[in-house]
Design a protein around this nucleic acid. Structure first.
Length: 107
DNA sequence: CTTATGACTATGA
DNA sequence: TTCATAGCCATAA
């Protein structure tokens, strides 16, 4: 058991991300124990049921704090609005303030 | 079986 | 600082 696949592990981890916090793809990959699969985390997000499945994929961003262009809920602007609504702070460059909103386990 | 692709990250120019 | 390329490895065809 416990072998529901890499994707489900990612979902479980992202699901633990509190509102107002963001996490990078590589961060999630590291938390699940496989930092090499950063790309598959994003792939898992695309295959995820979204918030309906309890997977707030909009809280998952690049390491730089930038969002996923072209694959967000209709545009990075929409995703940004969702994050801001949860209390995430953005820089003037349009990137998330990772210094303030980067999530980590045990927080 | 092989090849192509990808919601990434690190490195170099 | 930004832009381009390489490496990463699972999934699909």
């Amino acid at each position: 058991m416990e072998r529901e696949g890499f994707f489900d592990r990612v979902y479980g981890m992202v699901r633990q991300v509190p509102a107002g916090r963001v996490v990078s793809y590589g961060q999630v990959a590291t938390l699940v124990g496989e930092p090499r699969k950063a790309r598959f985390v994003g792939f898992a997000m695309h295959a995820s049921p979204g918030m309906a499945g309890g997977v707030p994929c909009h809280r998952v961003v690049f390491k730089d704090g930038s969002l996923a262009p072209g694959f967000a809920f209709g545009g990075p602007d929409v995703q940004r609005r969702m994050l801001e609504d949860e209390g995430v702070v953005f820089c003037e460059d349009g990137r998330v303030d990772m210094k303030r909103c980067a999530w980590e386990v045990g927080l």
